[in-house]
């Protein structure tokens, strides 16, 4: 069985600023990182590999320099690394992106091994749509299990999976037949760190590049042409000024309690 982890190279958003004139992201000189949620998807795929001995493919759609992201996946132990890169893929929205990724997963399914599981991060930190994973599940008619924070049980022979979903204020345990697409949250696991020998091997390992001559998708369904969604404007919202509550000097205990209540109220603290 093959497990596919979808990963994306994203700009390190803590270092991204928005150009106030053009309202676009200033990307120059900003280092790229692997989308943090995707690192958990990758980790879960590698854990299943360690447990069941299945193989793992990491796929990523992006410009040629996204190869670095796939090398990191190779250093962590994936068996195949495939970069989906072509000018015609560029400018894609979530629909067009999921078309390309689905086509690649189908190709892996026919050419390498039966795909049992596709793992994605719950969303990317640059686009924040959380739509690509579900889009893939829809295109491929896989079961769709989003916001997974724990894989409760997986039975490869019976082709069933049971997972826990992290919802607001509660958990939900759901079961589904394989193949399935999971989007995962950070609580799922703790990503591993690459060993030096693996890093050095990854430097010369093969990253396959698939362009549209390989996938042969209709140009109307990919890239800018295949994208019904257009970004008309990006801007930093005006932030309402915070208010100062209580008096930490006069009443430290009461003020601290007020803070705790506010945090509880906003679900930023659990008791």
């Amino acid at each position: 069985m093959l497990i596919v982890a979808c990963i994306k190279q994203v700009p390190d958003t803590t270092q991204v600023q928005i150009d106030p004139v053009t309202n676009t992201l200033v990307r120059e000189g900003i280092p790229f990182i692997v989308n943090p949620y995707d690192t958990h998807a990758l980790e879960e795929a590698l854990r299943l590999k360690d447990r069941f001995g299945c193989r793992v493919a990491a796929i990523s759609m992006g410009p040629p320099n996204a190869e670095g992201t796939l090398r990191k996946a190779l250093a962590l132990g994936v068996d195949f690394a495939i970069l989906l890169s072509d000018r015609v893929f560029g400018g894609a929205d979530t629909l067009a992106t999921s078309n390309v990724l689905s086509a690649a997963i189908s190709k892996l399914h026919t050419e390498i091994d039966e795909v049992g599981l596709v793992l994605c991060g719950k969303q990317t930190i640059d686009g924040d749509t959380a739509q690509v994973g579900p889009g893939i599940a829809t295109r491929l008619a896989y079961q769709q299990l989003t916001l997974v924070d724990n894989v409760e049980d997986i039975d490869l022979s019976a082709k069933r999976i049971r997972v826990r979903r992290k919802l607001e204020g509660r958990h939900e345990i759901v079961e589904a037949p394989l193949p399935a697409m999971l989007t995962v949250v950070r609580e799922l696991n703790r990503p591993r760190y690459p060993t030096v020998p693996m890093r050095l091997t990854a430097v010369n390992a093969k990253v396959e590049v698939w362009n549209n001559q390989v996938l042969m998708l209709d140009e109307q369904s990919i890239g800018l042409k295949g994208s019904p969604t257009w970004v008309s404007k990006i801007f930093s919202p005006e932030r309402a000024k915070g208010e100062i509550l209580g008096d930490g000097f006069a009443d430290p205990e009461g003020t601290a309690n007020m803070l705790i209540e506010k945090l509880l109220d906003k679900d930023m603290l659990t008791v």
């Binding site: 703790r190 591993r192 760190y193 690459p194 060993t195 030096v196 020998p197």
Partner: peptide, 9 residues
Amino acid sequence: VEEEAKFPE
């Protein structure tokens, strides 16, 4: 760290 990637979390 380098061979086993084993260290306090």
